[in-house]
Simulated scan of single mutants.
Amino acid sequence: MNISLPEDEVKRLCLLQGVSISAIEPLQSGGTRLVCTSGSGAEEMRLRLRGHLIDGHVLRHRFYRPPATHERP
């Protein structure tokens, strides 16, 4: 789903609801793309974030790679 909130806020809200994230990325057109690991988690977040859902086409980065969370030795 595409949400008109920053990525950190979406992660925080998923954590509060106990919903695990399969994939998350910032949208080139603004907002965040969220993929949950379960259908029930996705439905929970759709209900919680219904006022922030983006309808229609959004611009995504062609080859988005999340930033590394730690350095390798």
Rank of each mutant, 00 (worst) to 15 (best):
73 P>E: 01
7 E>T: 14
53 L>N: 05
14 C>A: 04
63 F>E: 10
6 P>S: 09
48 R>D: 09
2 N>K: 10
32 T>E: 02
45 M>L: 15
52 H>M: 10
63 F>P: 00
32 T>Y: 08
19 V>T: 09
58 V>L: 01
56 G>V: 05
42 A>C: 14
45 M>F: 08
68 A>S: 11
56 G>N: 05
67 P>N: 06
54 I>T: 03
62 R>M: 05
60 R>L: 04
45 M>G: 10
2 N>Y: 06
2 N>R: 08
44 E>Q: 15
52 H>D: 14
48 R>Q: 14
28 Q>R: 06
49 L>C: 11
18 G>L: 11
57 H>L: 12
29 S>M: 08
42 A>V: 06
59 L>F: 04
42 A>D: 12
50 R>S: 13
33 R>C: 11
20 S>I: 03
15 L>V: 04
55 D>P: 07
16 L>W: 10
47 L>H: 09
42 A>K: 13
8 D>I: 03
48 R>W: 04
34 L>H: 01
73 P>L: 05
35 V>H: 07
21 I>D: 03
57 H>N: 08
68 A>M: 08
4 S>K: 12
53 L>P: 06
68 A>G: 06
27 L>E: 04
70 H>Q: 11
39 G>F: 06
41 G>H: 12
28 Q>P: 00
54 I>D: 03
53 L>H: 07
17 Q>R: 15
25 E>T: 04
73 P>H: 03
48 R>P: 03
34 L>N: 00
20 S>M: 08
59 L>T: 00
67 P>T: 03
11 K>R: 15
37 T>P: 00
56 G>Q: 05
69 T>E: 12
52 H>L: 02
31 G>N: 01
69 T>Q: 11
41 G>M: 13
41 G>A: 12
36 C>K: 08
44 E>D: 09
40 S>F: 02
58 V>T: 02
33 R>G: 06
70 H>T: 13
33 R>H: 13
31 G>W: 00
16 L>C: 10
23 A>S: 13
7 E>H: 02
57 H>Y: 11
21 I>N: 01
19 V>P: 09
54 I>A: 06
64 Y>W: 14
47 L>A: 11
69 T>N: 06
12 R>W: 01
24 I>D: 02
4 S>L: 06
38 S>C: 00
10 V>W: 06
68 A>H: 09
73 P>I: 00
25 E>S: 12
49 L>G: 09
35 V>W: 05
14 C>M: 03
11 K>L: 14
24 I>H: 02
62 R>N: 05
40 S>H: 01
65 R>M: 12
4 S>G: 08
49 L>S: 10
68 A>N: 11
69 T>K: 10
8 D>S: 10
63 F>H: 14
37 T>Q: 12
63 F>Q: 12
15 L>A: 14
43 E>S: 12
50 R>N: 12
18 G>I: 07
1 M>V: 03
31 G>Q: 00
46 R>I: 09
60 R>W: 03
